[in-house]
Amino acid sequence: MPETQETIIEIKNLTVGYGDTIVLQDVSFDVRRGEIFVVLGGSGCGKSTLLKNMIGLHRPQIGQILYDGQDMVTAEGAQRRSLLRSIGVMYQSGALFGSLTLMENVRLPLEEFTDLPDPAMDLIAAMKLQLVGLKGFDHYLPSELSGGMRKRAAIARAMVLDPQILFLDEPTAGLDPIISAEMDQLILQLAESLSMTFVIVTHELPSIFAVADRVIMLDRRTKGIVASGSPAQLRDTSTDPWVRSFFRRETIPAVMRQEDRPPHE
């Protein structure tokens, strides 16, 4: 792993939510350059909300989100655009543009943000599609592809401008085990060969064990981080029974079950 101790994203005292509903309170963590960082937690614990705040779609209620020292929350105009250029996002269902072919989807950021000539854009788009294993599918429409292929095409589109950080929202959810394993391979290969930093939101255990350098685990009860470390460490040494159960895929006593409680406060 080309992982270093250098911090690339720093989250400071982040409180996020919708209106009066607080989803996460006073959360702080950092992501190091070149690592594969996984955000996980049970359903409804705020993983996706955290992601949407990190990529600038939502504005947090309190706190700072620093990319290389620049705050995404307060950035405006050109600074914000350059920050957004340094990240790529793959959405859960791909979010490919349905009326464009795969190649046009991948080419779109190149057309908008570079002055490259047409043949150059075609070649680069074809190269990116080959990198995610979709060579020969250039002319397919997203609706003609399987879910896994759509996710891979979405990764190709997210990284066509060589972002330093790639955010993946549930990259393996709903895929069969073989395709999931291929996705994990792809992520590892990209991280290694392109030295990209990955921030992945998921709750697929096999994927977490396969790719994650470090995980943080969010919890609905405390509205914050309940555990952090490498996945094996959390599984074997965590003192929190809920965390241990999560990693061992066990059921937990009903009194502790989070999903059954309505949001209080």
Binding site: T101, M103, E104, P119, D122, M127, Q130, H139, L194
Partner: peptide, 23 residues
């Protein structure tokens, strides 16, 4: 080295024919 990593991901023989983005 850091760029040759990137270069070694691709084989020029795979890209002899480049199609336009739409049939």
């Amino acid at each position: 080295e850091e760029f040759s990593h990137l270069w070694s991901q691709y084989q020029p023989k795979d890209f002899l024919e480049i199609r336009s983005s739409r049939p």
